[in-house]
Amino acid sequence: MSFLASLFGRKTSAPVARDRLQILLAHERATGEGQSDLLAKLHEEILEVIKRHISVDQDKVQVKMDRGAGVSMLEIDIEVPELKGKPGAKPSLAPDTAAAAD
């Protein structure tokens, strides 16, 4: 059955399910046993450092995550307000992006 199905192009779905679960559970187990989740910690500390230097509106911070098997992405976009004392300076709208391999 599965041989015929794969022969005719319809992929079986169970291997997809297995892969998705393996990735998910690897992350959940790592965080469940008291070990801190690296991505969560990075996220927290990066924001702390930024808050120390500039006051950022929570609404202007977008955090995106993509947890993968080999590589995970943590993407933090912060809209930095126009810096004082630099009249005419362009607002630095380019998002600061931090990416981390897990």
Partner: peptide, 12 residues
């Protein structure tokens, strides 16, 4: 999240 395929993207 899992049924919707968004489990790897959950932050908050």
């Amino acid at each position: 999240d899992l049924v919707m395929g968004a489990e790897r993207r959950v932050v908050f």
